[in-house]
């Protein structure tokens, strides 16, 4: 069947099989491989995308049920041009929050959403908000420092 979506601001249509997830469609039909496929059961968050403005695991969204949805992936967070970074992306680079990088896209999406919806979140709130995104490399320290850096820059320099 054909499913129509708005992905990163662009309308698009994809042929999907009934059992396919939104993650599969993004990665294999639309060529957006930023969202990753680490567990396929909603336990790692590496496929996090925004679906109609909420952070969800794309692996748990039946593509056929996403008809008409607005999807933002990590590729669509910053402006269109290569090299232009979202505040959170820049903070991850600067704080050394990236190691192997497999969890990074999902964490960036979750952290950017947190920054937008709860810009003043304290340490425990940030941790809880990111507790659905597993990272095996960093032990989370640098990730938390990156989020704090983005928060302070957002307050100083206006909205992200």
């Amino acid at each position: 069947m054909i499913v129509t979506l708005e992905v990163n601001g662009e309308p698009c249509a994809a042929e999907v099989a009934g059992f396919e997830s939104l993650l599969w469609v993004l990665r294999e039909r639309l060529g957006l491989t930023g969202a990753k496929d680490a567990c396929l059961q909603g336990e790692c968050g590496s496929c996090s995308v925004l679906l109609d403005g909420e952070v969800v695991c794309a692996c748990l969204v039946l593509a056929a049920d996403a008809e008409g949805a607005r999807v933002t992936t990590v590729e669509g967070l910053a402006g269109g041009s290569e090299g232009e970074l979202h505040l959170v992306q820049q903070a991850f680079v600067d704080a050394g929050a990236v190691q192997c990088g497999f969890c990074t896209p999902g964490l960036i999406v979750a952290a950017a959403h947190l920054l937008e919806t709860r810009p003043g979140a304290g340490d425990a709130e940030v941790r809880e908000a990111l507790s659905g995104n597993l990272c095996r490399c960093t032990g989370y320290g640098a990730i938390l420092r990156a989020v704090a850096r983005a928060q302070s820059q957002a307050t100083q320099g206006g909205a992200p």
Partner: peptide, 9 residues
Amino acid sequence: DAVPKVTGR
């Protein structure tokens, strides 16, 4: 490689 990793590229 941090920049391509944070942009999903």
